[in-house]
Design a protein around this nucleic acid. Structure first.
Lengths: 333, 333
DNA sequence: CTGAAAGCGCTAACAA
DNA sequence: TTGTTAGCGCTTTCAG
């Protein structure tokens, strides 16, 4: 019967307080040219009526240039993503952008993109939808910056990681420190059909044929550390002469470390261990983890830079950058 | 001289494509009642002109009910905050809200609040500004939900943690498992004047007078783990008969664990160790960490619930809830 | 299938 | 100190 839940607007407050809409604006936004008395009265009415400003209306009216980007990842419970989020937030803040976060754990990706498109000025993140056209359509004019391992796209901006180059540098460096028999602790998303990761491919390219066959695949999330522990045990059983283990991620490497302790294997004395990601967490294990770092490299800046272009609506073609992970030498290798 | 960087609007596209603005909208939003030919042409023009939709205008026009909340913390590099963020994101998504994140590491808090106020419908988080009036003014009508340890406010919503009750339950449970001499590894934000935390106060209330004096303060961030290691060593030197250590946070507890290993102290055999926070990280240390958990309790749901009320613009008075942390028993105690 | 009109809720300029 | 007048850029009717 009564108020069909109509929104309370400054109009209502103006009427109730017996002033003009303008005066309400002045009171709400702490602007000058209004007496303390009226301000207080208006604020009182506004609170009594439960007024909630419409950020859409006010931003439109003030032709605000505020930008907000969405950052999409698999899960913010994964330290790699949460550290990357923190890094990107810094880059975004430095540019005056707001950043909203979203994960596609509980929602179909295209639906998520659609919702975000209505709320942000650019969407950046790890998307898995293979159909670019659908992606672009879902984004309704909002630019997308894709973070991927293998870029096949022409109609989107993207940044990828060049693991081929990274491994081509890493392996010889390890060899110069005495490594001879490598092995890889590969990871596979839980409950999916196995598909070799680009990390594995890069690894196989960089090592001798015998090492190339020393690969154990662990089913990773949600508890990658446990998976790493299991995987390391299997690996040492099957390839006992391994002297250097490269783990798919730092989390897996942490599990391997734990397993090594249990087996009484000294790291790096008997087996050298290298993770991937560059988690800051890796600095507090003992021994501290050597890692092929993505975090803390130029990755973040490249993302921010491409996003900046995307936001500007430049008529330039789609950007496509590549960054090479670089080793952080700590104690484990 | 030329275009003073005027924004590209649907008007421009309409003109350029020789259609009405309406038709542009239909093309951009993948709506029906438009021929494929026109849609393609319009989309082409839009891309060529580098058109970027104004989310403010479109949301205003469609009287969208989309809500976005801001979540403010000290730093997303702290696992406690990043796990809490993941939890709250789930709660927010479940309610159909977007969530933007912000930290007041690099910006005066009031300025940050002001910026956020223009972009979101509610602000929730750990704020440190002591002057509530200033806070409310900066928020310009946007509701604030404060996460605090001691609530002194009447003009804001808030949720606090009841450590007094938590410790009053924890200590007897530990005693029933044989604990006699407690000690606290307290934490102090780096470079600040020391001010006893509510956790310390709660601890002192719950233990015997002798244990109440066994307190070591460590300067915490950014490397709380290291601080915990240092602190534990000092603590065992000064209070060697301690049989149970309670750490200010799980991170500090992890440092203590490391120190214990180095000193050859068995945990929990010789010394029991309890952290605070309930980090999922605590499950992968060895021994796994017993913790007075905040994460994974009703805390998140309470925050979301209060935020929901705040968003609704209810005329009800300010909510003020309290949640009691609860112990997760793992291996370290 | 396409267009014209009428706002969405707010604020920037100006007047009073 | 206050009010009036125009929009901000887009989408929703409703006609054509």
């Amino acid at each position: 019967m009564s108020d069909m839940q109509r929104r309370v607007t400054i109009e209502d407050i103006a009427r109730e307080a017996g002033v003009s809409r303008q005066t309400v604006t002045r009171a709400m936004n702490d602007m000058p040219r209004i007496s303390e008395a009226t301000r207080a009265r208006v604020l009182g009415v506004s609170e009594r009526l439960g007024y909630r400003p419409s950020r859409f209306a006010s931003n439109l009216a003030r032709t605000s240039k505020a930008k907000t980007i969405a950052f999409v990842v698999d899960s913010f419970r994964n330290p790699y993503y949460s550290e990357l989020t923190a890094d990107l937030l810094d880059a975004a803040s430095a540019r005056g952008w707001q950043m909203t976060i979203a994960s596609h754990e509980n929602e179909p990706e295209l639906e998520l993109i659609g919702r975000l498109a209505g709320e942000v000025d650019a969407i950046v993140g790890y998307l898995s939808e293979p159909d670019e056209t659908a992606l672009v359509a879902a984004a309704r004019g909002v630019p997308i910056v894709l973070l991927v391992s293998t870029v096949t796209t022409e109609s989107l901006h993207s940044i990828d990681l060049d693991f081929i180059s990274a491994f081509r540098k890493l392996i010889p460096e390890l060899e110069s420190r005495g490594s001879r028999r490598f092995a890889l602790l590969e990871s596979q998303p839980l409950g999916t059909e196995y598909d070799p990761s680009t990390r594995r491919i890069a690894y196989e390219h960089a090592v001798d044929t015998r090492s190339a066959e020393a690969v154990v695949v662990c089913e990773a999330p949600p508890q990658s550390v446990d998976a790493g522990e299991l995987g390391f045990n299997e690996l040492m059983d099957r390839f006992p002469d391994t002297d250097t283990v490269i783990a798919f991620s730092d989390l897996i490497a942490m599990g391997a470390l734990r397993a090594a302790h249990h087996r009484g294997i000294d790291v790096p004395g008997q087996v050298r261990l290298v993770g991937v990601d560059g988690l800051s967490l890796g600095a507090v294990t003992s021994p501290a983890l050597t890692s092929l770092a993505i975090l803390g490299t130029e990755f973040t800046e490249q993302i921010a830079d491409v996003t900046e272009r995307a936001l500007s609506g430049a008529e330039v073609p789609f950007e496509h950058r590549s960054v090479v992970p670089s080793v952080i030498w700590r104690e484990s290798a």
